[in-house]
């Protein structure tokens, strides 16, 4: 057969020998260093990317923290403002209430004073009226009693009133 005829044992021998030699030399001096260097580089790139990712995440966290702090501060300020506003309103209303109470009290006092003045004045008037009435009555009675008939008439009227009672 043509193929077997063409097969050269010497060439086969040299090819195997030289190729194996080349394989071992290249493996030791070329492929291992090249693949290791490439792997190292890829690992480095991977690490760098991971580090960048981490930094980004950290940054994001920091930003989120900042945001949170800001929010908290804002909420606190709002709360404080609200409280102050409430306090103000309360103070105002308290003051109003107090003033009102004071006023009411003063008015009440004044009214009471007026009442008592009035009572006193009425009492005074009453006594004066009574004394005047008594004087008038005395004078009338004196005049009446000076006349016997009149006295009797009076008694009679009085008695008549009394029975009616």
């Amino acid at each position: 057969m043509g193929l077997l005829d063409e097969f050269s044992l010497g060439l086969f021998f040299w090819q195997t020998l030289l190729f194996l030699l080349l394989l071992f030399l290249l493996r030791k001096y070329a492929w291992k260093p090249i693949l290791n260097a490439v792997n190292d580089r890829e690992q480095g790139i991977k690490d760098a990317l991971a580090a960048a990712e981490n930094a980004k995440k950290e940054m994001e966290n920091l930003q989120a923290d900042n945001e949170k702090l800001l929010k908290e501060a804002r909420a606190e300020r709002d709360a404080m403002l609200k409280e102050a506003r409430e306090l103000k309103a309360k103070m105002i209303s308290d003051a109003k209430d107090e003033a009102k109470a004071e006023g009411d009290k003063m008015i009440a006092n004044a009214q009471a004073a007026i009442q008592s003045e009035k009572k006193a004045a009425l009492a005074d008037i009453k006594t004066q009226v009574a004394s005047l009435s008594v004087e008038i009555a005395e004078k009338v009675v004196k005049e009446e009693l000076s006349n016997k008939d009149k006295q009797l008439k009076l008694v009679e009227t009085m008695l008549g009133d009394a029975t009616l009672n």
């Binding site: 060439l11 090819q15 030289l18 190729f19 080349l22 030399l25 290249l26 001096y29 070329a30 090249i34």
Partner: peptide, 19 residues
């Protein structure tokens, strides 16, 4: 065989240089 040797040397120096 001569060309195999030449190619082998070329490859060795090329990739050794690359390494």
């Amino acid at each position: 065989v001569f060309m195999i040797i030449i190619t082998g040397l070329l490859m060795f120096f090329l990739f050794r240089g690359l390494a």
